[in-house]
Design a protein around this nucleic acid. Structure first.
Length: 912
RNA sequence: GCGCGCUUAGCUCAGUGGUAGAGCACAUCCUUCACACGGAUGGGGUCGCAGGUUCGAACCCUGCAGCGCGCACCA
């Protein structure tokens, strides 16, 4: 028993150094700290290296990480880390967004709940102080979470959209566009949120299919009592604001009444019937009540016909109609029922029907918005033509490409952007009104500077700095839409106003933008326009649109549904690497993804597999083993190296196409199938005590050569575990990092000819396949776990004798003999393999009847195949017109089937 | 209404004209000294439906259906 030393002095039980299962938590934290410490993420704007840059889509400063962020930022981190490996100088610029409405709403809610106060109770200055406090307390949560994920951002350059320098940029852009006449103020119909009490842009309104009621009512003609015009509406509560009834000029019944007056029931008034082609003849009764203050179409019609505008709603959505005390102050939805009831009481309500229509909701407050006329600031977009063309021509490449169409459609139908918000948290509009004249300026119908230039308007001051005599001026109270700062992000984060910084010169334009398709309009399109106008050119070259993550039922992740797993919990359980890898592996290009925790578990398992493969290697120590000359190495080594070379080469192409899921899949398959299941099993003999020193050196050398490169390839996806293992296996010099290592220039098998590689590959593949066939034989006879099974090979290929040990090891067999004179006893299980006929002597233990049944079944299957194949080859059109190699392949197949069929027939015969 | 996308194994998804795939789940076996977060073997699919093109279609074309998402001034 004691024929070997109990332990080798140089490797005193090395396995004990590593826990059996990989435990990511401590490892991940350790490496992130080490990278920061060593400045691995810092971008050098003076570097000679080729630049590569990404700006992060800034998350809301008080937000918390969700799976969408994880996917999005994992992709950016992968791109950044890969670019560093390619020898580029990488800037991944991080930061956060002040998120006007969202943040202000949070603070207001807290204020209400804790102190029972509103923001107006505090006043603007005090309230803003509270928001800043809130930001300072909660603002770095998401940043910490991104760090936990392993994001390699240059944190020394972190920006916030409300930083002083950034704010100067926002103001400057406003001033420039104002002076150019592209920004104007005016009374327009805007989307009003009755909860947030602010105007919104069209993009912030979400149309939702809603079940509404369509009320049909009748108005009496003033001149001919007893005659009525019928009108349908979903909004009877705005009836008090009706100023006309519109009908289509070709309406068969009502057209004749155009010009007559009808009686508005309450408050009673006479309003005209007008004719307008915008009225749909088909819809409802073909007559439309016109409430210019509360509907976009009505507003247009009203303007055309010079109608009065009667606003019957307060900003908070309650009725404003002192003439009708019973309605005055009622909520709009309560008033709707009340108005219907009153119409019914007056005998004017004809019917109510259930009706499905689209209602615009406020994105943030999730309540129906109110079309409302109010004084707002608007922007006519700059650089529209150039920006449209940039994407159409491919100067900016969208991936997937189809989003370019969505972009083009939006660009072609641009509406002026309402940029003012009636909030306090944000960039205040840099416009001051002369105090003396404030009231008239405040209500001036238009301050459109395309007609009146700023310079010639003595009562208006527009500037980045406050006026020199502030006591004489009153500043506009509104702030700007958050996106009015976001659209400057790619260059305003890299420079100060008017400055052509070295960072900007080196890193602008950025290479890739990674974001969700839901903000093409909000952000992507506007950044392109701003980039052209203010950044000095296109802001990015590629835009990668990520998948939207849904739950298993296909619903969007949302807090209220509670179907959104907390990424931090997932990282606690499975590690950041596991989460990243799992998510990347299922994220398809362009389509939505249904998230399943199981995929994250897979990612964790994968990290564990990798860890254990290295742990196995460490049984032989962790000194880096140099690779012996590759010529003359066993075919298994050549094969695994060529697979790795192939993987490395293929990844270049797949990265170029941004197919991140496929990269993960390929990395997974190589490690698990090619490396662990096949190669590592095949070389176990070479690592036994009994193996020769040469064999051991070759195996260890191959392991280290392949694994060290593989860890590099995997690093962008699983940065922590690859760093940990590279250190433990001494693949990087002490104090160095795998993340800083550039990819090797030459493949492992650079000195091999294609033919040599192929020959080795074929041999190795033949052995692996044969091993599978032999295991299969064992399993069919329920001997899967038996180690004492022997095989006999007949008609074996010449080289097989050298590989019998490996084959036996892989097949789980004590012995494999090559014996052409072997006469199989009747009923001996047999299989055709790429290296010869294999027999599994059973010494008469098998159930002959069962075996006959099995073989008969297989013969049936195979006959079907043969018939199919013969039929195909008997078709003249196929033989004549298909490519020769396809026909040859088919013939070869048929021969194979026939041979097997004959063998099976013999076996069946033998059993008789 | 217009546009876009999706439909492949029980589930999540690969698969761009040549023998239908992976992971999970399932079944059987294996706690063999890298890994049970593991290994081995296996069962499971008329590729949404109907036409067409082609020697050959999951793949290309047409139509239809179902689902999802954008856009739109249907009160």
């Amino acid at each position: 028993m004691l024929d070997k030393p109990q332990s080798l002095p140089e490797h005193p039980n090395p396995m004990s150094e590593l826990a059996k299962a990989y435990e990511p938590q401590a490892v991940e934290e350790k490496w992130y700290a080490a990278w920061l410490e060593a400045g691995c993420f810092r971008a050098d704007e003076n570097s000679e290296k080729e630049a590569y840059s990404i700006v992060i889509p800034p998350p809301n400063v008080t937000g918390i990480l969700h799976l969408g962020h994880v996917l999005n930022n994992a992709i950016q981190d992968i791109l950044a880390r890969r670019a560093r490996q390619e020898g580029k100088e990488v800037l991944w610029l991080p930061g956060t967004d002040h998120a006007g409405i969202a943040t202000q709403a949070k603070v207001e809610r807290e204020l209400r709940e804790k102190e029972g106060k509103t923001r107006r109770d505090l006043g603007r200055d005090e309230f803003l102080k509270r928001v800043w406090d809130f930001k300072n307390t909660h603002g770095d949560i998401i940043i910490k979470q991104l760090k936990r994920l392993g994001c390699s951002c240059d944190w020394s350059r972190e920006r916030f959209t409300m930083d002083a320098e950034y704010t100067r940029w926002v103001s400057q852009v406003f001033v420039d566009l104002f002076n150019e006449g592209l920004i104007y103020r005016g009374k327009r119909m805007v989307n009003w949120c009755p909860v947030s009490l602010t105007a919104l842009s069209d993009e912030e309104v979400i149309m939702k299919a809603s079940r509404s009621k369509l009320f049909t009512m009748k108005y009496e003609l003033a001149e001919s009592p007893g005659e009525f015009i019928h009108i349908s509406t979903t909004r009877p509560e705005t009836l008090m604001g009706d100023v006309a009834i519109a009908v289509h000029p070709k309406h068969p019944k009502y057209a004749q009444w155009i010009g007559k007056m009808v009686r508005r029931p309450f408050p009673e008034a006479l309003i005209p019937i007008i004719g307008d082609e915008m009225v749909d003849l088909e819809f409802g009764t073909g007559a439309l009540k016109i409430t210019p203050a509360h509907d976009k179409v009505d507003f247009e019609i009203g303007k055309k016909h010079g109608l009065e505008i009667i606003d019957v709603l307060h900003p908070d959505g309650t009725i404003n109609c002192p003439a009708l005390p019973e309605f005055h102050g009622l909520d709009r939805f309560v008033a709707r029922r009340a108005a219907a009831a009153k119409l019914e009481e007056m005998g004017l309500l004809i019917g109510i029907e259930e009706y499905e229509n689209n209602v615009g909701y406020s994105e943030r407050a999730d309540v129906p918005i109110e079309p409302r006329i109010s004084m707002q600031w608007f922007l006519r977009y700059p650089e529209i033509a150039k920006s449209t063309d940039a994407v159409a021509s491919g100067d900016i490449q969208f991936r997937p490409e189809r989003w370019a169409k969505t972009y083009a459609h939006w660009m072609e139908n641009l509406q002026d952007w309402c940029i003012s918000r009636q909030l306090w948290w944000g960039h205040q509009i840099p416009v001051w009104y002369r105090k003396d004249n404030f009231e008239s300026l405040k209500n001036a119908e238009s301050l459109d500077t395309s007609h009146t230039s700023n310079k010639s308007h003595p009562d208006l001051y527009v500037g980045v700095e406050p006026p020199a005599d502030p006591e004489n001026w009153i500043r506009d109270e509104d702030v700007m839409d958050t996106w009015f700062s976001s659209w400057l992000w790619p260059f305003a984060t890299m420079s100060d106003v008017g400055e052509n910084s070295t960072t900007l010169k080196k890193f602008y334009p950025t290479a890739d933008l990674v974001t969700g398709p839901d903000i093409i309009f909000f952000w992507v399109a506007r950044m392109i326009m701003a980039g052209y106008r203010f950044g000095g050119g296109l802001p990015f070259k590629n835009v990668y649109f990520t998948s939207i993550i849904r739950d298993l039922k296909g619903r969007k992740m949302s807090k209220s549904l509670g179907n959104s797993p907390d990424p931090i919990d997932l990282m606690d359980k499975f590690g950041a690497d596991g989460l990243r890898f799992g998510l990347m592996r299922i994220a398809p290009v362009g389509a939505d993804v249904r998230f399943d925790v199981a995929t994250v578990e897979e990612g964790r398992n994968f990290a564990n597999k990798l860890y254990n493969a290295c742990r196995f290697r460490q049984m032989d120590g962790n000194e880096f083993a140099p690779l012996p000359a590759v010529k003359g190495l066993p075919v298994y080594h050549i094969q695994v190296m060529s697979k790795l070379d192939q993987l490395a080469e293929d990844l270049n192409g797949i990265y170029a196409e941004y197919r991140f899921g496929e990269i993960a899949q390929r990395l997974y398959e190589f490690l698990w199938n090619d490396f662990c299941d096949k190669w590592l099993e095949a070389v176990k003999a070479d690592l036994r005590e009994s193996a020769t020193a040469e064999a051991r050196a070759a195996a260890l050398g191959t392991f280290d050569a392949v694994m060290s490169r593989y860890l590099q390839l995997l690093h962008p996806y699983m940065p922590h575990v690859t760093e940990e293992l590279s250190e433990r296996m001494n693949y990087v010099a002490s104090g160095e990092f795998v993340m800083r290592k550039t990819l090797p220039e030459k493949p492992l098998l650079a000195e091999f000819s294609a033919a040599e590689t192929e020959a080795a590959q074929k041999q190795a593949a033949a052995i692996y396949e044969t091993a599978g066939r032999l295991r299969n034989l064992k399993a069919e006879y329920n001997l899967g776990s038996r180690k004492d099974v022997r095989f006999v090979m007949k008609g074996a290929v010449a080289w097989l004798s050298n590989e019998l040990n490996v084959l036996a090891l892989l097949a789980g067999s004590t012995e494999i003999l090559v014996d052409d004179s072997y006469e199989a006893p009747k009923g001996t299980p047999a299989a055709v393999t790429p290296v010869g006929e294999a027999y599994m002597p059973m010494e008469g233990l098998i159930d002959v009847e069962a075996e006959r049944v099995r073989i008969s079944r297989e013969i049936e299957k195979m006959r079907i195949e043969v018939t199919k194949s013969e039929g195909k080859l008997g078709t003249a059109s196929f033989v004549d017109r298909a490519p020769p190699e396809v026909v040859a392949q088919e013939k070869e197949r048929l021969e194979d089937w026939k041979t097997k069929l004959a063998q099976l027939g013999e076996m069946l015969e033998a059993l008789r």
